[in-house]
């Protein structure tokens, strides 16, 4: 009894410490935030007897007291751009990308842990609850090693900035001065919370203590998300500056500097992207462990782990293109020219590569789900229909990756009769591409629905009606998506973008309504046979590795696109890049650089996985009993 009370006190103290750590940066910042930057500047000016100088915010168009120096006008020399005998931009690109890969991984994994631990707490089935708990513990163990590496890479990144771009870094850190130390203190809070969360796992495994532990994961993720939002405000400021006048002088309102035109779209897009990326990396880890497994029991465990990670990753991948559309819409609203550079100008071919990668992600996901049906009896009934899904995916994919115009020789141009192919040219416009990607996503939803009912037969009295309704709903959804895509050809381009909204609504209707209907139909369903975890082809695991690699590559690509759209500006229209590397790289060089980054990340993350495998200790030992091994056991849920 005394031990239990002791544990409770320990847990509550730990949680209070975390909340304290979370509030620490705010408390430390209160004096400067309460006094306000403007007052400082105003007081300083009054003391000198000067007239207070005011400036006009370049974005918000409000007036503010000038509280900072103008953006430095750099020159191509060792003063502003000290260098090694190598392109500084490439070194910075490498350091930045590696830090970002690891940063997004260690921010995503605790969110997974929170979701999986919560599933374990609310699950009625004790054996399944322990399996979820074990899985969450496995996840956090992986991220702990990666966390140290993230901090090291962050240090390398800062040194790279200070050494190679001192003028730029000095200006940016000056603008964000009121929140720079908050960012640093957030790291203290994040580290403290993560270590208490990880090392407290054993002591807080039951009842009330488990809820305290779960609350810690919420605190951990709040800190992690705030950290990311602050980091996003820097890149938001570089793309769409606000809170400064046209000379780049800070006007005293830090909220304007943080809350730029692109900040919130970037926040949403990055949260979803991090989650999908984290899911992909963990799924690849599980696939690697599955392929290396010696026993059926291990194979079953890692098969299940791979499935859960993939399902969580794809759950965030599905809304990701829509968040991307919002981001692009805001880019166009902020500066139309910037949008045109991205989608129809200098960087347009990179978007074709992006479309190719998105297609690969969805194709890999579908392929994995079709293979995964092999681990359940009763799913054979869907096998003969898969070829139709392949046809739909292939059609959607081909439309999605068709470029608007090709780079051609005069002879080729003449042979084709113009810049655009007479038939295929029609598929190179956004109207067709919106239709293509929505068909792909809807097909992925359909694959998921089939997978979820693979080994079950509905026993509800309206099962026949439910099945027919589901078929009709998907059929009408496909028709509606294609109808709206065709409609787009009959209206001007500037209003055509409005058609993407009902298309997205159609896809999301399929996602939410059909998942809900399927859940109702499968309540108390008859099981045709158990899910035989571990009984899956090796090909499926390579699909998971493909999924993760494609994701890593695409993150590198999109980071490059987002960065290079600033062209020759460090801070768009405020601080010019006068280094010898202000030009935009060729597509080929960029692709090679992205590939090198991906390769380096995967080599190092394999090292992290190997380090994690050295600590073979598994906390809830009893959970092993719940993992179905060579003898198939009924899995009560997905």
């Amino acid at each position: 009894m005394g031990l239990l009370v002791g544990k409770r006190i320990f847990s509550i103290v730990a949680l209070c410490m975390m909340v304290g750590l979370l509030l620490l940066p705010v408390v430390v910042a209160l004096p400067s935030l309460a006094i306000g930057e403007e007052t400082h500047a105003g007081d300083a000016a009054k003391k000198d007897g000067d007239k207070v100088e005011k400036g006009r915010d370049v974005y918000y168009k409000t007036e503010g007291i000038v509280s900072g120096a103008p953006a430095p006008k750099t020159t191509d020399g060792v003063k502003d751009y000290p260098r090694y005998n190598f392109e500084s931009r490439v070194l910075l690109w490498f350091a930045n990308q590696q830090h970002l890969y690891y940063g997004s991984f260690v921010l995503a994994v605790p969110i997974f842990c929170m979701i999986i631990e919560f599933m374990g707490v609310v699950t009625k089935d004790k054996a399944l609850a322990k399996r979820y708990d074990q899985l969450a513990y496995d996840f956090i163990k992986i991220s702990l090693t990666a966390y140290s590496l993230t901090a090291i890479l962050g240090g390398i990144l800062i040194f790279t900035f200070l050494t190679l771009y001192p003028a730029f870094f000095s200006y940016l850190s000056g603008i964000f001065r009121p929140v720079m130390h908050i960012y640093a203190l957030m790291f203290v809070a994040e580290s403290g919370t993560l270590y208490i969360y990880y090392y407290g796992w054993d002591k807080m495994r039951e009842g009330f203590l488990k809820w305290i532990h779960l609350s810690m994961s919420v605190v951990l993720n709040v800190i992690g998300t705030l950290l990311m939002f602050l980091a996003n405000s820097w890149i938001g400021f570089m793309m769409s500056p606000a809170g400064v006048d046209e000379q780049g002088r800070y006007l005293g309102n830090i909220w304007h500097v943080i809350h730029t035109a692109l900040w919130n779209p970037l926040n949403l897009h990055r949260i979803l992207g991090n989650m999908a990326f984290g899911g992909g990396v963990v799924a690849a880890y599980a696939a690697y462990k599955f392929l290396a497994s010696k026993t059926d029991e291990d194979r079953a465990h890692y098969d299940w782990m791979g499935y859960i990670a993939m399902a969580l990753g794809v759950a965030f991948l599905i809304p990701l293109p829509f968040a991307g559309y919002w981001l692009m819409r805001e880019v166009y609203a902020y500066r139309q020219q910037m949008g045109i550079t991205l989608m129809g100008g200098l960087l347009a071919w990179l978007f074709i590569i992006q479309a190719t990668m998105i297609g690969i992600l969805f194709l890999s996901t579908n392929y994995y789900l079709w293979q995964a049906m092999g681990r359940m009896r009763g799913a054979e009934k869907y096998q003969r229909y898969i070829k139709y899904l392949v046809f739909l995916l292939a059609c959607g994919y081909m439309v999605f990756i068709t470029p608007h115009t090709m780079v051609m020789t005069p002879a080729e141009l003449k042979a084709m009769g113009g810049q655009q192919h007479p038939v295929l040219g029609n598929y190179g416009v956004m109207s067709a591409k919106n239709g293509g990607i929505n068909v792909i996503i809807t097909t992925t939803v359909l694959s998921f629905v089939w997978y979820m009912r693979g080994n079950k037969v509905s026993t509800v009295s309206w099962a026949k009606f439910g099945n027919i309704f589901m078929g009709v709903f998907f059929g009408c959804a496909y028709f509606n998506i294609i109808f709206l895509a065709v409609y787009g050809y009959y209206i001007p381009a500037n209003v055509r973008v409005g058609l993407s909204v009902p298309q997205v609504a159609t896809t999301l209707s399929c996602l939410f309504f059909m998942f809900a209907l399927n859940s109702f139909m499968m309540k108390g369903a008859k099981q045709m046979g158990p899910i035989e975890w571990g009984k899956i082809s090796a090909r499926s695991q390579y699909a998971l590795i493909m999924l993760a690699t494609a994701f890593t590559w695409m993150m590198g690509l999109m980071g490059y696109i987002r960065s290079s759209v600033r062209l020759f500006w460090h801070v768009n229209e405020i601080m010019r890049d006068n280094s010898p590397w202000a030009y935009t790289h060729t597509v080929g060089f960029a692709a090679n650089m992205i590939s090198a980054n991906v390769l380096f990340f995967w080599i190092t993350i394999l090292f992290v996985f190997w380090l994690g495998s050295l600590t073979a200790k598994k906390v809830p030992v009893e959970s092993k009993a719940g993992i179905p091994g060579s003898v198939p056991q009924p899995a009560p849920s997905h």
């Binding site: 026949k464 009606f465 509606n480």
Partner: peptide, 30 residues
């Protein structure tokens, strides 16, 4: 409920509900 399980009736009812839903959604959002 048994009438709804008749394939023809199920198909007609499903089509009415689904087509009606998508027309309303498209109409409203456009």
């Amino acid at each position: 409920m048994s009438a709804l399980n008749n394939p023809v009736i199920a198909l007609v009812v499903s089509l009415i509900i689904t087509v009606g839903y998508f027309v309303l959604v498209d109409h409203y959002l456009m």
